[in-house]
Computed example of a mutant assay.
Amino acid sequence: MRTVGVEEELLLVDPDSGEPRAQQSAVLARAAQDDPGQDVFQKELFGQMLEFATHPQTDMADLGAEIVHCRKEAARLAGEIGCAVAALATSPLPVTPTIVAHERYRWMTGQYGMTAQEQLICGCHAHVSVASDEEGVAVLDRIRPWLPVLCALSANSPFWHGRDTGYVSYRSRVQRRWPQTGPNELFGSAERYHRLVRDMLASGVVLDSGMLYFDARLSARYPTVELRVADVCLRAETTVLVATLARALVETAARDWRAGRPPLDHSVNLLKLAGWQAARSGLGQDLLDPVTMLPRPAVEVLGSLLEHTGDALADSGDAAFVAEAVAELLRRGNGAHEQRLLMERTGSLRHVVTECVRRTQD
């Protein structure tokens, strides 16, 4: 059974006003005070963010329990300094981001200028174990057209600094401002993947391999494929759904590779259009079908994803959970839908944030 680990980035906010607060250092200090050796909560680019990472898990119920625990711990630590955490992929309210004092972050600010300063966005990254770099690159080649569907499922960033963007995942559009993001052409081998990494590092445009913000990549630290397209999800159960589908996609791709089935040879330009469409309308309208790259109702594309990964989900025992979770997500809507409903009902972005603080921990 492949292991799955999740990294989630949370927004630190004032519990009353909903405005982001640059309290990351204080929260990390409290975490270190409680447990000097803790490695769950981690430093991020902006003081208004807090990241945590789960342990690798094989059982999705265990993964869900750890995500809930980490969110509650983050809320407790933030609450002890008069702050709160919200699983929001962008700030609905205006904010002036505060870049954390760190040599690497200073380099990024000097190198990328305004682009770096605009990146107060919160994502969800799923790490799925692979047996080798060859298997990992074969997986990367085969999951490319399915990644926009995960973006649509997780979409949780309709507002940006006081305005409705017209997108459901504006985070993914902001992230595209980096020069080293998005989908890749087919690699075909681990050697070609690593050659691209070496060439990009030699260019001097990026500092290290951790700055290669591909939609999916080989992790520089773990024997995993890292899927990076998802917004941080408002509800923990949506995070578990994304992680479960990520593992099923990786397992399906690895099986196809071993069976000699080639990847779909879609161009990067088409994949960019599919990512844009997912970020624009999410589950509300059409997505681009991962096989044909033609418009198709989102619910039908979701059905194709479940069919594509059906054997892997059945073998891992996750098929029933995924079917139920997808049905619930379609009934309730993703985080972007919930945020817009809150805004329609209250007319207050402040209320949107404070209510999302509560839903983050539900």
Rank of each mutant, 00 (worst) to 15 (best):
D286Y: 11
A279G: 15
R280S: 11
G317V: 07
L273Q: 12
L283C: 07
R280N: 13
V268P: 06
D265S: 13
L234E: 09
V268L: 07
R255H: 05
L201P: 04
R255A: 11
A246F: 00
D315R: 14
G204Y: 05
V268F: 08
R198E: 12
Q277H: 11
D199V: 07
L249R: 02
G310M: 01
W257M: 00
G303T: 06
E324A: 15
D289Y: 15
L241H: 09
K272W: 12
S316I: 08
A216S: 12
F214Q: 06
D265M: 09
G303K: 13
R198Y: 05
Y222M: 00
R296Y: 04
K272G: 14
R261S: 03
E300T: 13
R221Y: 07
V268N: 11
D265H: 06
C233D: 11
A202Q: 05
S304V: 13
D199P: 00
A278W: 04
A202N: 06
M293E: 13
R258S: 10
P262Y: 09
D199A: 10
L264W: 06
A323K: 15
N269A: 15
S304G: 15
T238F: 02
T292E: 14
T239H: 07
L207W: 09
A325K: 05
V225W: 02
D208V: 01
A312N: 05
R235E: 03
T252E: 01
V301T: 12
A230E: 06
T244F: 04
G310I: 05
G317A: 04
V322I: 06
A202D: 09
L288T: 05
L249Y: 07
S219D: 11
A236M: 01
E226P: 01
V322M: 03
V240R: 02
L273Y: 11
D315P: 09
T239E: 04
R258W: 00
A243F: 00
G284E: 08
V242Y: 02
V301K: 04
M211T: 07
R247P: 00
G310E: 13
L207S: 10
V291R: 12
Q285I: 07
R235W: 10
D215Y: 06
E324C: 06
V232T: 10
C233E: 05
R255C: 08
R221M: 13
L271S: 12
A312D: 06
A298M: 10
T309S: 14
V225Y: 01
F321E: 15
D256K: 04
T309I: 07
D256L: 10
E300Q: 15
L241M: 08
L234G: 03
P262M: 02
L234N: 03
A323N: 11
H266C: 08
L271Y: 11
Y213A: 01
